[in-house]
Design a protein around this nucleic acid. Structure first.
Lengths: 205, 205
DNA sequence: GTCTATATCGTGATAGAC
DNA sequence: GTCTATCACGATATAGAC
């Protein structure tokens, strides 16, 4: 079709992405978005039929293009140790570029309604279980203890994501500026894999 | 003063606590709260001057009485291993009783405005650093490696809190019912301390 | 203390001129 | 495609009767 991309449409999308993530779906108003995109409410509803629709269109891609590819690293074909370091590193770098995304996603998941639920399911959230198989193989070799992949994944996700989820509290409570926060999460790139591997390589208690 | 506690006032507080946590400050309406408390909007504004004020009054106590005491376990006078197991266990049990609280607190912290910020600061969020001192003593004895208390605290908090923060996604993605979720977080009571202690006891990389 | 009725405002969405 | 003007609604909050 090669339809020329309207500049206005893109500006609205960008403004929406920014404001939705910053303030949540409920607190970001159409007026905010229009003003931030240097236009007016009527045009927002001209390009997208409604606020809900705008939300949907913007986050289908945005979410599927940032979070999911990184999360899938755990199912890549890589040696266990390499994989864990790569996962933590890529996830951390992604979050440094988009630090408010995780809190946004989680808070939009409250309540059944939530457009986010549909988006997550449609984005192919159901992964393969090749990570569990890898853990089983390593355990059979005696390289690591027996471990539940879901528990390990959850721990990894927790430790990487949580500092960003609680960024505001963390900064406030420990007087961190942006630079100090970056140093903090950067040093976790080493700590988190070490902690995970120390657990896996330990004899079962 | 011994002023008789109005039953209505308590019902409103309870309703507010429930709905604020469930849907967030912005999405819980005064009408919701009034209806849920079996009364009307006028009475809500009679007892509390405004919605914001109601929020403030309800969460000053609620938050300070549930989360903070548990968080302070890390500064208790206990052997390191005992302390870590106790912290994870108590925190998990607290969260099982109030599973939506963490996501609520974090999402209310977005934006500078946020009454939550004041509440957190006033609640005595500034703890002592006795946990760091304990880690230093243990490291000096050679029992553990040198470690930053803030990093260890963050990892512990992460691993306990995150499953509750992402409860909806977790349940949806892995078809967990309430019982399965409880089993999941219960088994983390063992995994999380093991992981933390395995890291601390490991020779430095 | 409790309720009904209402004032006032901000929101999402649309009609219609250009 | 773009804008102004406006509608319909739901929100918080209050006035005033009982």
């Amino acid at each position: 079709m090669a339809k020329a991309q309207s500049n206005t449409e893109e500006k609205i999308k960008d403004a929406a992405r920014k404001l939705f993530v910053e303030k949540g779906f409920g607190n970001a108003t159409t007026r905010d978005i229009a003003e931030c995109a240097d236009t007016n409410i009527a045009l927002v509803n001209y390009y997208f039929r409604s606020k809900e629709n705008l939300f949907q269109e913007v986050f289908q891609e945005s979410f599927a293009h940032t979070f999911l590819p990184v999360a899938r690293i755990l199912n890549d074909d890589l040696p266990l140790e390499v994989k864990i370091y790569k996962f933590v590193d890529h996830m951390t770098e992604m979050l440094k570029r988009d630090p408010m995304m995780p809190l946004f996603v989680l808070s939009e998941m409250r309540g059944e309604h939530s457009q986010m639920c549909r988006i997550m399911l449609e984005s192919g959230a159901l992964e393969s279980n090749s990570f569990q198989e890898q853990l089983n193989r390593e355990a059979a070799k005696g390289a690591i203890r027996a471990a539940d992949a879901l528990q390990v994944e959850t721990s990894l996700m927790s430790m990487v994501l949580f500092p960003f989820l609680s960024m505001n509290i963390l900064k406030m409570k420990h007087q961190m500026d942006d630079e100090a926060f970056t140093r903090f999460v950067d040093s976790r790139k080493k700590i988190i894999p070490e902690m995970t591997l120390a657990y896996l390589r330990q004899r079962e208690g």
